[in-house]
Design a protein around this nucleic acid. Structure first.
Length: 244
DNA sequence: ATGTCACATCTAATGTGA
């Protein structure tokens, strides 16, 4: 986990809630004290080396659940839900999927289908809820720097986009797209080559909100500056402001 | 355009996943 950079970002931005993905440490190794010292509570569903998701919040965190609890494979720590200040919040790390046709791709599509079934069974679109994280899906061509070059590729293929739409159709709004109907801000740029320098990015990190929460949306921005500098992630943080 | 990065492992170069 990029602890120093996250700490500096939290000190400056002071979000009420921060959802993290790919923390890549188990619960015992998560830097809980770093967040506590900043005035945050944390809920962690960690995993060593791979995956791992967490939520930090300035209010109390209650009703924490991890995984889908559907009897399926929960070996990957990719999903944690909790309640903060009356909002049900999820930190979501969707599998990358490697490439269409691979086992990992099938796992990704099934994982997204499981998330939809979990929402059907365990959540209420009429209540305030947000799903935040690395979705590893660019929902439409506006979210891709070069749609022709990416057509059919991982992160952009039609089955992935359809699985994404099934999540949205459950009852959420992509709040960046709601705030910026024609915006072309990206949240991820490949480490390799000159992709960031040339802004050859994709928008794959999303905040989805149910109607009662989306109605309170003020702004949604992607902090491109965070992709720069020493020890930067290949992702940039997405932030949304909601009225009380 | 198969490139960069971080981390793991039979601590040095290689495999893995992104």
């Amino acid at each position: 986990m990029r602890e120093t950079r996250v700490k500096e970002w939290v000190e400056r931005v002071r979000p009420d809630i921060l959802c993290m993905q790919e923390v890549k440490v188990d619960n015992a190794s998560f830097p809980t004290l770093t967040f506590t010292a900043l005035g945050y509570k944390v809920a962690v569903h960690g995993q060593r080396t791979y995956n791992g998701v967490a939520i930090a919040a300035r209010h109390d965190i209650t009703d924490i659940t991890t995984g889908f609890g559907d009897g399926g494979d929960d070996d990957h720590s990719r999903f944690i839900m909790a309640t903060v200040a009356g909002v049900r919040v999820g930190s979501v790390y969707v599998p990358n999927g490697q490439a269409p046709g691979t086992d990992k791709y099938a796992y990704k599509l099934e994982w997204l289908a499981r998330l939809r079934r979990w929402l059907d069974a365990s959540a209420d679109p009429a209540s305030p809820l947000a799903l935040c994280g690395d979705w590893n899906v660019a929902p439409g061509d506006l979210d891709v720097h070069d749609p022709k070059r990416w057509a059919g590729q991982i992160l952009c293929s039609e089955p992935e986009r359809e699985a994404w739409r099934q999540i949205v159709a459950w009852g959420t709004t992509d709040v960046y797209r709601a705030a910026h109907p024609t915006g072309t801000a990206f949240s991820w740029w490949d480490y390799r080559g000159v992709s960031f320098f040339k802004d050859q990015g994709l928008r794959i990190d999303h905040i989805l909100a149910t109607a009662p929460l989306a109605a309170r949306l003020q702004t949604c921005t992607i902090d491109r500056e965070q992709r720069k500098g020493r020890d930067a992630s290949d992702h940039a943080p997405v932030t949304a402001d909601f009225t009380d």
